[in-house]
């Protein structure tokens, strides 16, 4: 069942529609005027969203061959799903996907738990300086991924990092760039960047809970934590689902952070994440294989996030 939340504007799946008399009025007044409103968006949307995907699919099914040596005439041959077979039998692709799944299973819940905790504390009566904290937590979102990764790269660097020096003084010298640790070093950059953004979405949902509801719980003797657990969290579940979907998308698309950290760590291979692999293949001018890899990746992302969304609906989480 859908839980009613925040504004009355409808939901992702059941979009609002005007009542019949209103719609008739609009139509009468409009005629074909809707085209003027919709086309300026629809044309570039088709050109730069749908067409590239279509083009990539086409490319992935074809291959350019030259008959009679390199000076022969190039001709395009249909290779069917050969490229896709190549993608799925590539050990680098499979290990990249596995790495991202591991990353997502660990990083996404931790990040969302922190975001939820921050949002609940900022929404509760016990917090002070709420505005300042909200801005501080959100700040990293405004910082480009490249810059965020550069800053953390310095803080991880064995030669330059003050953190490494401090930890070295109190215990064993940490190696943030080692082959095991590097994945979690990347996870830390991602968590640092997006926790505040997710917090804000959850916080916005919390703010929409009627004051009387929390007060009623309070006068029934429920403490702050009890109120949060049994009243607030169930109500903001849709916001949690939303942040979950976007986090899954982000995980599968991971690219910037590993590419930047690659400058200082040899433990990030050219196929470390699926997106990095697709990029490396394209850099090697194997366009059909790059096309197939990126199609698989885009479809995979879409299916997984959409699937999570549907599951959440079925289970009544949103």
């Amino acid at each position: 069942m859908a839980v009613p939340v925040t504004a009355p504007q409808g939901s992702l799946t059941a979009a609002p529609a005007g009542s019949p008399p209103q719609r008739r009025a609009a139509r009468r007044a409009g005629g074909r005027i809707w085209l003027v409103f919709v086309l300026p968006f629809a044309v570039p949307f088709v050109a730069f969203y749908l067409a590239p995907i279509g083009y990539a699919i086409t490319q992935s099914l074809l291959r350019t061959e030259r008959s009679g040596g390199i000076f022969g005439r190039p001709r395009t041959v249909f290779t069917g799903l050969d490229q896709y077979a190549a993608v799925f039998s590539d050990p680098a692709f499979l290990s990249g996907v596995g790495r991202m799944l591991l990353f997502g299973v660990v990083q996404v819940p931790i990040m969302l738990a922190i975001a939820l905790a921050l949002a609940l504390v900022l929404d509760s009566a016990v917090a002070r300086l709420k505005k300042v904290f909200r801005i501080v937590f959100f700040l990293p979102y405004a910082i480009p991924g490249v810059v965020a990764a550069l800053m953390w790269a310095f803080l991880y660097s064995p030669q330059l990092s003050p953190i490494v020096n401090v930890l070295d003084a109190v215990g064993p010298r940490p190696d943030f760039l080692g082959s095991e640790a590097i994945l979690w070093s990347i996870a830390n950059v991602v968590t640092w960047t997006y926790t505040g953004y997710n917090m804000l979405i959850i916080f916005a949902a919390l703010q929409a809970i009627p004051q009387e509801l929390s007060e009623a719980a309070r006068s029934d003797g429920a403490g702050g934590i009890r109120t949060a657990w049994s009243i607030k969290i169930p109500i903001v579940r849709p916001a949690l689902v939303l942040t979950g979907v976007f986090s899954i998308i982000g995980t599968l698309q991971l690219f910037t952070e590993p590419v930047v950290l690659r400058l200082i760590s040899t433990n990030i291979t050219s196929g470390y994440t699926p997106n990095l692999l697709a990029f490396s293949i394209a850099s090697g001018n194997n366009y059909p294989l790059a096309a197939a890899t990126s199609v698989v990746l885009a479809m995979g992302t879409f299916v997984l996030s959409f699937g999570f969304f549907r599951l959440a609906q079925k289970r009544g989480w949103s």
Partner: peptide
């Protein structure tokens, strides 16, 4: 909304 910009970058490049 569910297809992020990074997923489109390579197809855009190819096109």
């Amino acid at each position: 909304v569910l297809v992020p910009a990074t997923a489109l970058a390579l197809p855009l490049f190819l096109m």
